[in-house]
C-alpha cells in the first residue's frame, strides 16, 4: 500500500485521438498502480486501448489528460534527453512484430541499447552474449533476424529488452505473432526472468495463456479498466508452469 513501491502509476490518464473532425477517446481515465517485481497482464479485446496504454506507460506517447509516473517521476516533466535515458535504461520494450533491426545480427541487436547507453564495445559484447545465452540463443549470435524463426526473433527481442537491466519490461502482445507452443515458451521465459531478475513485467495481451503466470490482471474494455484480478496462490502456479515439460 506504500506509494514508494509503485514502479508505475497512472492517474486519470485519458487519450483522445483527433483525425480531422472525428475524435476518438481511446483511454477514458485509467488509474493503475504497479509494484516493483510484479507480473502484470493487461487483457482486453482488440481495439480496447491496450497499445495506447502501453505507449503512455512506456513514455512513447503523451496522454491528453492525466499523469503517468515511472518510479514516481512524472513522465510529462522530462525533457527529450531524460526521456531517451528512461527508454534506454529504465524500460525494455517487446513488440508483437519483434522489431529487430533487420540489417543487424542478433548480437548487434542486443548490444544496440548498450551502445546508446555509452557502454564500451567489449563490455556490451560480453553482456550481449550472456543475455543471448540466457534466452537460449547462444548459438545464434551472428544470425540476422530473417534467418531466425519468429520465436527465436522474439527471444532476441527479450534479450534486447533486458540489455540495460531495466526496472520494467513492457510487452505489447509478445505472443501475438507466435504459434501456441512458441508463445508459451516466451511466456515462461518472461516469467522466469521476472522471478530471477526481479524485473517488473507489464504485458498487454489477449492471449489467455498469460493468465497462468500473471500476478495481477487488468481487464480493459473500451478504454476503461473493467476489473483487476488478483491471483492468490501464485507460488503454486509458478510451480506448475516450471514443472511443465
Amino acid at each position: 500500500m506504500d506509494i514508494e513501491e509503485n514502479v508505475v502509476r497512472s492517474k486519470d490518464v485519458k487519450k483522445v485521438f483527433t483525425m480531422g473532425k472525428i475524435s476518438l477517446e481511446a483511454l477514458k481515465g485509467i488509474n493503475i498502480e504497479i509494484k516493483r517485481g510484479e507480473y502484470i497482464s493487461i487483457m482486453g479485446p482488440s481495439g480496447s486501448g491496450k497499445s495506447t496504454l502501453f505507449n503512455m506507460i512506456g513514455g512513447l506517447d503523451k496522454p491528453t489528460e492525466g499523469k503517468v509516473y515511472i518510479d514516481e517521476v512524472d513522465v510529462a516533466q522530462l525533457d527529450a534527453y531524460e526521456l531517451a535515458w528512461l527508454r534506454c535504461r529504465k524500460i525494455g520494450y517487446i513488440f508483437q512484430t519483434f522489431n529487430l533491426i533487420p540489417v543487424m545480427t542478433a548480437l548487434e541487436n542486443v548490444t544496440l541499447p548498450m551502445v546508446f547507453a555509452g557502454m564500451s564495445t567489449d563490455d556490451s559484447m560480453d553482456k550481449g552474449v550472456e543475455l543471448l545465452n540466457t534466452v537460449g540463443l547462444g548459438d545464434r549470435l551472428q544470425h540476422k533476424p530473417l534467418e531466425l524463426s519468429g520465436g527465436q526473433q522474439q527471444r532476441v527481442a527479450v534479450a534486447r529488452a533486458l540489455a540495460n537491466d531495466p526496472a520494467i519490461v513492457l510487452a505489447d502482445e509478445p505472443t501475438g505473432n507466435l504459434d501456441l507452443k512458441t508463445g508459451k515458451e516466451i511466456i515462461v521465459l518472461l516469467r522466469r526472468l521476472n522471478k530471477e531478475k526481479g524485473v517488473t513485467i507489464i504485458s498487454a495481451t489477449h492471449d489467455l495463456k498469460m493468465l497462468d503466470v500473471s500476478d495481477r490482471i487488468f481487464w480493459i474494455r473500451d478504454g476503461k479498466i473493467e476489473r483487476v484480478e488478483e491471483r492468490a496462490g501464485i507460488k503454486l502456479e509458478v510451480g506448475t508452469v516450471e514443472g511443465e515439460e
Binding site: T97, N99, L112, A117, N164
Partner: peptide, 14 residues
C-alpha cells in the same frame, strides 16, 4: 519507419 521508431525506443536521441 519501424526501424527508426525502434531505435528511439532503445534510447536513440533525435
Amino acid at each position: 519507419y519501424r526501424e527508426i521508431g525502434t531505435m528511439k525506443c532503445l534510447g536513440a536521441l533525435d
